[in-house]
Design a binder for these strands. Structure first.
Lengths: 196, 196
DNA sequence: AAATTGACATACGCCTCGTATGTTATTATC
DNA sequence: GATAATAACATACGAGGCGTATGTCAATTT
């Protein structure tokens, strides 16, 4: 029963899936809503009914990817014993994830350009929140210096983002990746109370 | 004599000026080429003849702003005696400049989304180059640890960029600005050989 | 002075977005 | 269980923007 809400949820999922592909491949502006809805076996009518407009669709896609990223990063960080090592591991994980075209194109390039500051997205950027919480814990533990956790999280994620852009655009990503991660760890170590 | 190339240069300048305003106010996508050319007292014909297409116009605008920024930042850094203090001052200057709507909207948001990675722009991102050179000098002087200068410059500028986005989007910029700059200095200090 | 160049204007077609209006299956009501 | 109402989605329409193809006239050349 309640076949309608079930169908609606299915169609929403279909549209988001098609949009992820279209946005990743052609970028936000380059993606045609007629094309991507047809790809999902629907029309623009469904899209506007479910998401309001093209931006709304992008917001839904971003939320999904961002939530995925936060889960993956958290899982990677959880493997580390040391909390600070977990922070570094999460950062490195973000850098690696940011190499995926879907993440880079949709979340890192078009997302901010179309939706504005990530901290004010509907999803409120799960990645950012996770990093901030980790930093707050490290401050409480006395491992890193007293600093505004939000600020530190923003700067670290920004550093990771640009590292990823650089790596992805470089002709030999495998070569520059370790340099970027090394630099990232160095910057992050600036937060430590005692030099390692 | 050579009235033609003079006129052409004038028209190019007019178009870039009008485009700076239009892009800053309405964003790249939101800016109409008919409107901004009319604003400059010309038509789209002049625009396509001079810049090829809309992207070409954005590239020209970005180059101009980027070059301005590098000059301003360099002037600010040059006031410092200590080279490392100069790096910090330049970073803080970038953060402050990134608060200007023109810089933020055009160079930091639409620029990467439309033109791709800044290090591969025609202008090659003067800001990035300047930071890299400063870092290379500091490495040579033995002030900061041996690190890939390009990587460190990219991450620092990325951190500054996100700091600016955060500040600009916050309801009370004056309040979060010092936090951002403090966090930036902390991260940068991670590059130092000896803890300060 | 006539011819040529080219910087720019004009005109056209295509595509895309958003809205307004239908249509039909599903659910609610009696 | 039949009818009415709802809403999810499709279809149709209009407006605007980009890029190109063509036209025009001033400036330079010969």
């Amino acid at each position: 029963m309640n076949k309608r809400i079930q169908n609606m949820a299915d169609n929403r999922a279909k549209l988001i899936t098609a949009a992820r592909k279209a946005f990743a491949e052609k970028g936000y502006t380059g993606a045609s809503m007629d094309d991507l809805t047809a790809d999902a076996g629907l029309t623009r009518g469904a899209l506007y009914h479910n998401f309001g407009d093209k931006r709304g669709l992008l917001a839904a896609v971003v939320e999904q990817i961002d939530s995925d990223m936060a889960m993956r990063a958290h899982a990677i960080g959880a493997k580390e014993q040391d909390e600070f090592q977990a922070l570094l591991a999460e950062g490195a994980a973000y850098i690696r994830m940011a190499l995926e075209p879907e993440v880079q194109r949709i979340v890192l390039l078009d997302g901010p350009a179309v939706l504005g500051d990530p901290s004010q997205w509907p999803s409120q950027s799960s990645c950012l929140q996770a990093t901030r919480i980790t930093i707050e814990r490290l401050i409480a533990q006395g491992v890193i210096k007293t600093v505004d956790a939000e600020a530190a999280a923003r700067l670290l994620s920004g550093a990771a983002l640009n590292a990823a852009l650089w790596i992805a655009a470089s002709p030999n990503p495998q070569d520059v990746m370790p340099k970027a991660i090394e630099a990232f760890k160095l910057l992050a170590s600036g937060l430590l109370k005692h030099d390692s």
